[in-house]
């Protein structure tokens, strides 16, 4: 097989894996938009906050330690214990649920029936607030995140592809884990939304929240529920991206990778987030591989948006989005 074809196959596989990582972020946006029509600007920061909380809990870091030290002249830093990864993840998920309750009580409750742009602006404020809160609670230094996920080249895939094609493909073990996690996550979310009472309520609110209210569905409960799930999805995204680069404030910028995925896959479709991620991942990687060297490289960031815009020309609602028809 020609070398260039093998390289293109390797790039395609890595593009699919990268796409899954983008989809993990995009899922959080979809969940909240689907249930409330709100584009949650704070989704990237939620991932950062969740990852910071996870590392802090796992390492036994005292939250707000330097504020406490500055006020009381103490020298507190850690509780002196380290938590097992699974327990820390469960506790971090609990914190995200608590955060969802607080967000609903302090922000969303007061904005019922407001225009979507008002809610969007509220999420911008929320994003900056959470970024500051994360800094004050856990500090701005880079934190190593180790929850036992494997990293580095998959020797199995390298050996197999070398045997088949005479060239061993590179696939990162972390990307394989991310793919499995994404499959489980999407399956769970689909089952939850199709077959559970709360899931059906959630879909009812998404379709028409006035009608849902009239049949006794609590809008406030649904908002807490959906923000909790989005918080959990943010935690998963934070773990995957944080394992790769360490947990640091640039983590919030992963949201930028999710936007073209949403444009392409549609803002209301969970499978759309996955398929959109895969198309963006493969598209940007193949473009960088084939055209990048001719135009100086670094094409991925902008090409993802070009690709999304191209799809929008033909399907303005995205590949899987619901077609909006407004009659006048």
């Amino acid at each position: 097989m020609p070398e260039q074809l093998l390289y293109a196959m390797e790039v395609t596989l890595n593009g699919l894996m990268a796409g899954v990582m983008y989809s993990l972020v995009a899922l959080g946006f979809v969940l909240i938009f689907k249930a409330s029509g709100v584009f949650n600007y704070a989704q990237g920061v939620l991932a950062l906050f969740a990852a910071l909380t996870l590392v802090g809990l796992k390492n036994g870091q005292i939250p707000f330690a330097h504020v406490i030290n500055a006020i009381f002249g103490t020298d507190l830093h850690t509780f002196g214990w380290k938590l097992p990864a699974l327990l820390a993840i469960l506790l971090a998920a609990g914190v995200m649920v608590l955060l969802a309750v607080i967000i609903e009580k302090l922000v969303l409750k007061h904005l019922v029936s407001q225009a979507p742009i008002i809610l969007f602006m509220a999420t911008i404020g929320l994003a900056y607030f959470l970024e500051g809160l994360g800094d004050v609670m856990w500090g701005a230094d880079i934190k190593k995140l180790d929850v036992g996920l494997p990293q580095g080249i998959s020797e199995t895939i390298e050996t197999l592809t070398d045997r088949w094609f005479g060239y061993g493909f590179f696939i990162d073990n972390l990307d394989i884990v991310a793919t499995l996690v994404a499959v489980v996550l999407v399956a769970s979310l689909t089952i939850f939304s199709q077959y559970s009472k709360q899931g059906r309520a959630l879909r009812a609110v998404a379709d028409d929240h006035q009608a849902a209210l009239s049949v006794g569905i609590s809008l406030r409960f649904i908002w807490v529920l959906v923000w909790s799930i989005a918080g959990f999805v943010a935690l998963v995204a934070g773990i995957m991206w944080g394992t790769k680069s360490g947990v640091q404030f640039s983590l919030s910028l992963i949201a930028l990778k999710a936007l073209p995925v949403l444009m392409l896959g549609g803002f209301t479709s969970i499978p759309g987030a996955i398929v959109g991620g895969l198309i963006i991942g493969v598209g940007e990687k193949l473009f960088e591989f084939s055209i990048g060297p001719m135009v100086g490289g670094a094409t991925e960031n902008w090409f993802a948006y070009v690709l999304a815009l191209l799809f929008l020309v033909f399907r303005p609602q995205g590949l899987f989005g619901e077609k909006i028809i407004e009659r006048v």
Binding site: Y7, M21, D172, K257
Partner: peptide, 16 residues
Amino acid sequence: ELPVDAPGQEQKSQWL
């Protein structure tokens, strides 16, 4: 020469 767009969280293409 291999440019990486800011912030640089995704560098798979360059390292491949």
